[in-house]
């Protein structure tokens, strides 16, 4: 047994998994086309893109590292406030603001990542929740910096790269959010399909066994948690930059809960789960709250329960194609093992 064929096998496996699938191309073409085909829905689309990025960032830690978080809004909120404060006091240039806000959220992620290294799932849940409550109250009290309960207003954002101004229709905003989402996804894809990503999955399954195989769980968790915080910070910054306003509810508990819901809705551990969940959740909410402004929460609750009962796997494209293929009688060499693995 020489190590060479095995290594070749492994890298072939990784390459196969990392290959862009036709469905993915289709999705991004649709997303880009929406910017021109749906001129009156740009604001909703931006909201979807932002929520998708936020949910993807949560997927990185929930789906890959197995850390359940009920306080992910902490990083989102810090990113949002950072973007607001940067544009008020330092520079109104959006890209600089975006990157710096992500970095600031990332620093917070790095600092708090050591808190989620120990303890059971429940402990981690409570720790993340506690951190987000602390930051939320700090933002509420530090009125001299954050505007307290009134939020930050008067934020003006320069045109992107000095060329594209944020318009009232929100088209620039959407294209901007979509670009950031795409870039973030490409990077995340590379990371999770690299050996690093595989080792994370190993940690998620059984961290003790992973450690015995020579994978250091702690260091990897710190890295992925920080990256996830950076992504959440980007999402928050995008919200600030497209709405030019920050209110204290960027840090509210319901935001952490919503994003977890979105992720569960779309499916955990394959990056697109957050994106799909964000599309379903936002469209459903926007539609229902127009149809029935008073009672939409009832209907959204009902739909969510129904979705969970039916099984969210039905809306997972990988499995859907597998299912379609088995029904049409064609063998599905790549999809079937994938489905088994994710079960």
């Amino acid at each position: 047994m020489s190590p060479l064929p095995r290594q070749a096998l492994a890298s072939a496996f990784l390459r196969r998994k990392a290959r862009w699938k036709p469905l993915e191309y289709g999705f991004w073409i649709l997303a880009l086309g929406a910017a021109f085909a749906l001129p009156s829905q740009q604001l909703l689309l931006s909201e979807i893109a932002i929520l998708a990025l936020f949910a993807m960032s949560l997927d990185l830690i929930v789906g890959y590292a197995g850390i359940l978080s009920l306080g992910h809004a902490a990083f989102f909120g810090v990113g949002a406030y950072a973007a607001g404060l940067l544009s008020l006091h330092l520079t109104a240039e959006p890209l600089t603001g975006l990157i710096l806000s992500g970095a600031i959220a990332g620093l917070l992620g790095l600092a708090t990542s050591y808190l989620v290294l120990r303890g059971s799932d429940l402990t981690k849940l409570m720790t993340t929740f506690g951190v987000s409550m602390l930051i939320s109250e700090a933002a509420n009290q530090a009125a001299w910096l954050t505007g307290g309960a009134d939020g930050l207003s008067g934020i003006l954002i320069d045109p992107i790269a000095g060329l594209f101004e944020f318009d009232l229709f929100g088209q620039t905003g959407y294209l901007y959010c979509l670009t950031v989402l795409f870039a973030a996804l490409v990077i995340a894809r590379r990371i999770v399909h690299a050996p690093f990503g595989l080792s994370l999955k190993a940690i998620k399954r059984n961290s003790r066994r992973a450690a015995m195989l020579g994978i250091s769980p702690n260091r990897r968790i710190v890295v992925i948690y920080t990256l996830s915080a950076v992504y959440a910070g980007f999402a928050g910054a995008l919200l600030t930059q497209t709405t030019s306003f920050v209110s204290p509810d960027v840090l509210a508990f319901h935001r952490s809960a919503d994003v977890l819901l979105v992720l569960v809705l779309g499916g955990v551990g394959y990056l697109y789960g957050g994106v799909i969940g964000a599309v379903i959740f936002t469209v459903l909410r926007a539609w229902l709250s127009v149809v029935t402004p008073q009672y939409w929460m009832f209907w959204i609750g009902l739909v969510l329960v129904a979705l969970v009962l039916v099984g969210r796997d039905r809306i997972n494209p990988a499995r859907l194609t597998a299912w379609v293929r088995t029904k049409t009688g064609r063998a599905a060499p790549s999809a079937a093992p994938l489905a088994k693995e994710e079960a």
Binding site: S40, L43, L44, F169, F245, D249, S289
Partner: peptide, 22 residues
Amino acid sequence: VLRDDAGTADQTRRIAQELVVK
């Protein structure tokens, strides 16, 4: 045209903008 913002500022902002534009 009545719309619900659930007391969340970014929703208020989006809804207001949509009401004007759409």
